[in-house]
């Protein structure tokens, strides 16, 4: 049976892992390869690396990091941040990444989703969305949550999938950094509207939150960053809770 995945997310810049709280206030949390190895041994089902370097310098550093991670760990991982073209995607995939995550560049140029899916298959293309509640719906943001684009997040999710996205990484900006739980209403709304897997992101603070994201948010995978980096929770604790709640989980790993 296909399991629900638990995914630590590592924000990186200049080849180092940083911690993001509401997308600002960054604190160094270590070496990416070391972190990747740690999570691999802890039973992470997958990893996500988001390069938060704003400029396009440092692409070589990122590629080198991807290469080093792929040489060390043997679980799938996604790389996102600053990927603007099919050529950028190819470079990262050829370094050993399994999937590419695009956010701002997909909103600016939705055709990039289609081109990427055509070149590498939908299973390689993850569209990440930063959503913030606005009345009864959610608005979409770009540039790491800085700018609103006045686009309904659920509609955008549907469009991204129609264009070829093979997976959606949905971050609630309202919940991110609060440690009070995922936005399960947003997750469920998107999950019900699309035919591809949805990764829940933003707001995890306790084991229960992950269970709820699957049960009520209908998420196919759950993602967290600082919670794991600072060892507030282990992946194993979440897996045990999933198992107890009869959520399919990869045990033993």
């Amino acid at each position: 049976m296909l399991v629900k995945r638990i995914i630590p997310c590592l924000d990186v810049t200049g080849g180092r892992v940083v911690k993001g709280v509401k997308f600002v206030d960054l604190i160094d949390a270590g070496d990416p390869v070391e972190q990747a190895q740690y999570y691999n041994e802890e039973g992470a089902d997958e990893l996500v690396f988001l390069d938060i370097t704003a400029s396009s310098d440092g692409r070589d550093i990122l590629q080198d990091m991807v290469r080093r991670v792929a040489a060390t760990i043997h679980i799938p991982f996604t790389v996102g941040g600053g990927i603007r073209s099919v050529a950028d995607m190819r470079d990262i995939l050829r370094c050993g990444a399994d999937k590419i995550s695009i956010n701002t560049s997909a909103i600016k140029n939705p055709d990039l989703i289609t081109q990427g899916a055509r070149a590498f298959g939908s299973q390689c293309i993850v569209v990440a969305t930063d959503a913030r509640r606005k009345g009864v719906s959610w608005d979409t943001y770009t540039h790491g949550g800085r700018y609103s684009v006045n686009m309904d997040a659920v509609q955008w999710a549907k469009e991204a999938v129609e264009r070829g996205a093979g997976e959606l990484l949905v971050t609630s900006m309202d919940c991110d950094g609060t440690q009070e739980g995922f936005d399960n209403e947003l997750l469920a709304r998107i999950s019900e509207e699309v035919s591809v897997p949805v990764i829940a992101s933003g707001g995890a603070g306790a084991v229960r939150h992950f269970v709820d994201a699957v049960k009520f948010g209908k998420a196919d995978a759950v993602l967290a960053a600082s919670l794991f980096h600072f060892r507030q929770l282990t992946i194993n604790e979440i897996k045990k809770a999933f198992f107890k709640d009869e959520i399919p989980v990869r045990l033993p790993y």
């Binding site: 399991v3 995945r5 299973q123 035919s195 897997p197 196919d220 995978a221």
Partner: peptide, 13 residues
Amino acid sequence: SPGGKIPHMGWNT
């Protein structure tokens, strides 16, 4: 076939 999520993505037995 449509119904399940596509792609089939993740760990399975």
